[in-house]
C-alpha cells in the first residue's frame, strides 16, 4: 500500500511568479496563476519578493505525497482518474483522483501524487 508523507514546501502567493527563478534541484508546482509550491523549501525567495513586497511566503507542510513508478501510477489513474492526463512529460496536472483533490507531477518514469494531508489516509485506502 503506497504511504503518503508530508511534503515540506515553500508556498508563495504572489503576482510576480512569472519571472521567478529557483534552484535546479527543486520541484516547482504552479498550482494557480498566483500560487507556487516549491518542494523542498527554499531559503531565498527574493526573486519574487523583490518584485512583489506583498507576496505571501510561508513554510508549508499541508500536503502529503508519494512517488510511484510510471506503471503503478498509470494503473491508479486508469481506475481512479476520470480526466485526461496528456502524454507530455514532465508535466504538472491537478484534479480529482479517487474523489480527492490531487496534484500530479509526472516524469518519464515516475509520478508524484500530492493530496492535502488531511485526506492522505483516505487517499491511501482508496487507491490500493
Amino acid at each position: 500500500m503506497p504511504e503518503l508523507n508530508r511534503l515540506p514546501a515553500t508556498r508563495i502567493v504572489s503576482t510576480a511568479l512569472d519571472g521567478a527563478v529557483w534552484p535546479e534541484n527543486r520541484l516547482v508546482l504552479r498550482t494557480a496563476a498566483d500560487e507556487l509550491l516549491i518542494i523542498p523549501p527554499v531559503a531565498d525567495v527574493s526573486s519574487v519578493t523583490s518584485h512583489d513586497p506583498y507576496a505571501i511566503v510561508v513554510e508549508d507542510a499541508s500536503y502529503a505525497g508519494v512517488w510511484l513508478g510510471a506503471d503503478e501510477a498509470a494503473a491508479i489513474l486508469r481506475r481512479h482518474c476520470e480526466w485526461r492526463v496528456t502524454a507530455q512529460r514532465p508535466q504538472f496536472a491537478q484534479g480529482a483522483i479517487a474523489g480527492i483533490a490531487t496534484k500530479l507531477w509526472l516524469e518519464a518514469d515516475r509520478v508524484l501524487f500530492v493530496v492535502p494531508a488531511p485526506y492522505a489516509v483516505e487517499f491511501e485506502e482508496r487507491i490500493v
Binding site: 481506475r79 481512479h80 479517487a98 474523489g99 494531508a117 488531511p118 489516509v121 483516505e122 487517499f123 482508496r126
Partner: peptide, 29 residues
C-alpha cells in the same frame, strides 16, 4: 469508480483516537 465525500483528519487525529475519543464528523472534519 464512485467514492464517498472524504472526511478530513487533523494532524492530531491519531492522538484523539489513541486517547479513546469518540470521533464525529462535523463541518467536513
Amino acid at each position: 469508480g464512485a467514492h464517498h465525500h472524504p472526511t478530513a483528519r487533523t494532524a492530531l487525529d491519531g492522538e484523539h483516537r489513541r486517547l479513546g475519543a469518540k470521533m464525529e464528523r462535523s463541518g467536513g472534519w
